[in-house]
Design a binder for these strands. Structure first.
Length: 287
DNA sequence: GGGGGTTCCTGTACGC
DNA sequence: TGCGTACAGGAACCCC
């Protein structure tokens, strides 16, 4: 499932091929892939064809490629199963291909940027850029908090936000308006590393525990990024269709019934927010 | 505005 | 073999 490390791998993979490329043609095969683009397919195509990508940016799980008009960008959210793939221009259609952008790069020549998405929770859109402090971000990303790898992430504001919330700390970690980029996998892994029970009220955490948690979030995300992200199946791959290796390094997520790598107690899996939480009942005591 | 539940979607795994 | 069902979960949306 694409969380921050997976989206960053995709961004970094796209950047060298897309930056400086002119968009020569756009094909939309399934308009459900444009749920974030309210103006529809024709408008989406018209706003892209003939434009040049100038960069590749990311905040949390949102990815965007600013355009040369200076005030808009192609944005992408991969949802559960979205993929951005770089293909030869004549490559056969992917199984769940929804949109294909034909681009031409001054050095690399013609390429296809393919947006494929099995569960159709992902979407592309062309969005307007607005100023956000020193940077420019799409309007659809304005409400998303900075992610913990962002140099402008405010540790003190994060701690304050947790103090104000009585919800389970895991629920708060998944709130992209408090901290972005963390999803179910890395929330479970970070809480395991920080020895915090996922149902602990955020406001009950000591300042020291909050800082320990934030440090573990950063550590887990950095390790996952270094290993190319987490792949369980073909759902997450980089722009070349290759899987990441971090699934081999998971300590809690997906390990229900297996021994905790730290103490040997069996990892517990519980329903939580219409999904699953994985934690060690010994290391992560409920307060 | 915080809190918590529901909804969207499709492929896979599993039980009968 | 075939059918039905549970499950995976990001984020918008809703009501309290």
């Amino acid at each position: 499932m694409p969380e921050l490390p997976e989206v960053e791998v995709v961004r970094a993979g796209l950047a060298p091929a897309t930056s400086g490329s002119v968009i020569t043609a756009v094909s939309v095969f399934d308009d459900r892939a444009l749920t974030r683009h309210a103006a529809g397919v024709a408008d989406f195509v018209a706003r892209l064809e003939g434009r040049v990508f100038v960069d590749a940016m990311r905040r949390g799980k949102f990815l965007w490629l600013p355009l040369d008009d200076g005030d808009s960008a192609l944005i992408a959210h991969l949802g559960m199963s979205g993929q951005m793939l770089l293909r030869r221009p004549d490559a056969e259609a992917e199984r769940h291909e929804r949109i294909r952008l034909h681009i031409e790069h001054p050095q690399h020549g013609e390429l296809a940027v393919v947006f494929a998405d099995q569960r159709t929770f992902g979407s592309l859109a062309v969005d307007r850029l607005v100023a956000d402090g020193p940077s420019w971000i799409p309007t659809q990303v304005v409400h998303i908090a900075r992610d913990p790898m962002d140099p402008f992430f405010d540790d003190a504001a994060f701690a304050q936000a947790l103090r104000r919330r009585g919800s389970a700390v895991k629920r708060v970690l998944l709130d992209q308006q408090v901290i972005s980029g963390v999803g179910n996998i890395y929330a479970d892994e970070s809480l395991w590393a920080a020895r915090i029970h996922p149902e602990t009220p955020a406001s009950a955490l000591s300042p020291r525990a909050v800082m320990r948690l934030l440090a573990e979030i950063r550590s887990v995300l950095a390790k996952a990024l270094a290993e190319g992200g987490t792949s369980f199946d073909a759902q997450y791959v980089n722009v070349n269709g290759q899987a990441g290796y971090f699934a081999h390094s998971l300590n809690a997520y997906g390990r229900g019934g297996q021994p905790c790598p730290r103490c040997g107690t069996l990892i517990r899996r519980e329903a939580f927010m219409n999904r699953s939480s994985h934690y060690c009942p010994q290391c992560q005591r409920r307060r």
